[in-house]
Write a protein that binds this DNA or RNA. Sequence first.
DNA 1: TGTTTGACTTTTTCTAAAATTTGGTCAAAA
DNA 2: TTTTGACCAAATTTTAGAAAAAGTCAAACA
Lengths: 201, 201
Amino acid sequence: MNAVDDKRNQIIEAALKRFSHFGIAKTTMSEVAEDLQLSKANLYYYFPDKFSLIEAIAYRIIDESDTTVEKAFGEAKDTLDLLFRILDMKKAYFEKYYMLTLNLHEMNINEDKWKGLAKNLFQREVDTVSRVFKQGIARHELVTFDVASTSELYVSMMRGLAMFCDRATPLALIDRDELARMFEKQKQAAAIIINGLREKE
Amino acid sequence: MNAVDDKRNQIIEAALKRFSHFGIAKTTMSEVAEDLQLSKANLYYYFPDKFSLIEAIAYRIIDESDTTVEKAFGEAKDTLDLLFRILDMKKAYFEKYYMLTLNLHEMNINEDKWKGLAKNLFQREVDTVSRVFKQGIARHELVTFDVASTSELYVSMMRGLAMFCDRATPLALIDRDELARMFEKQKQAAAIIINGLREKE
DNA sequence: TGTTTGACTTTTTCTAAAATTTGGTCAAAA
DNA sequence: TTTTGACCAAATTTTAGAAAAAGTCAAACA
């Protein structure tokens, strides 16, 4: 790893620390720079703007979580168990980076950049679910179906469940103490969905 | 029907016309009164506040739609067909009262009153789905399961699908020209869910 | 030549006051 | 009992100025 990449990593870590403690909106670029005893101008040498820093952090976390997903693929005994493990992983990350997710909503970075990032993160979730479904089909645990559209459906439903957990009015971000209940509901839903896709013996 | 009820109905109809054309937020009580050539003060003689007028309209529509649901119960050949018919009905209403639903979100009437109404409307949807499920179980089409919690799950997932239809960032209200696609997705989801609850022969 | 910075500009956010609209009330009239 | 004009109060919008934060750049540094 070269010196520039190393510095970029230091910045990402410092920013992540502040972001997940105080939230993205309430953390300034100057503060991140100060934490590393850099000037703000120098920080901008490594990241062209605040958004690209946020973006780098987002992908860092997703990449890290993907290793956990990989482990789950190796350990799970069947498709539903695999989805449950992935949900458990997501719960752990959600709790750990709660402030981060919180502020994703109350930010008003350039609308287009924001949507682009959200779309990519959504797609990566869909891709993971696609892999799960494909494996289930290959093992003759699930019937054959349109994996791409069904994966999208699955992720959309899970996100919807997160917004409408125990409430009639949608909430951008669920309270911290409702997280456990929300994930229970998601598991319940996953069980029904997988059952609906299962091959009859 | 007495004179007061008759007047209240006239007001509801006039208000509904304006609300579904311009939206709730951008319709003033004075305008509704003018349409009927009443004074604003007189309008307030029949409805104590704007919210109670909105509420009356909401229940009027739901009650009306319930007769369509009733018909669907009589005509549907099985559980999934019944859910499809209910979704078709909802689509028709959604299109008809599009501006109305739109403004439900961007209003900021007293938070508590609002949540109360939203909760009731949500519950009525859940109750309808409960009836569907119970009938399916009674006819041995579906396995036995916790109807109450599963109905809630069903409605939450459907609402979630509405917000995340073809997009990664939630949208309070979907575009008019995406409605058809959204309802297709909801049908797709309903099919999987019902399949997951189906009794094996 | 790649990195760093102080000083600078620009953009966004915050605040508070004024103006305007709209929801809601009431005594009196019909 | 129903209706209304005149009124009040609460919420929304507008505006303008101050403050804060994002982002830039020429010069210095190593």
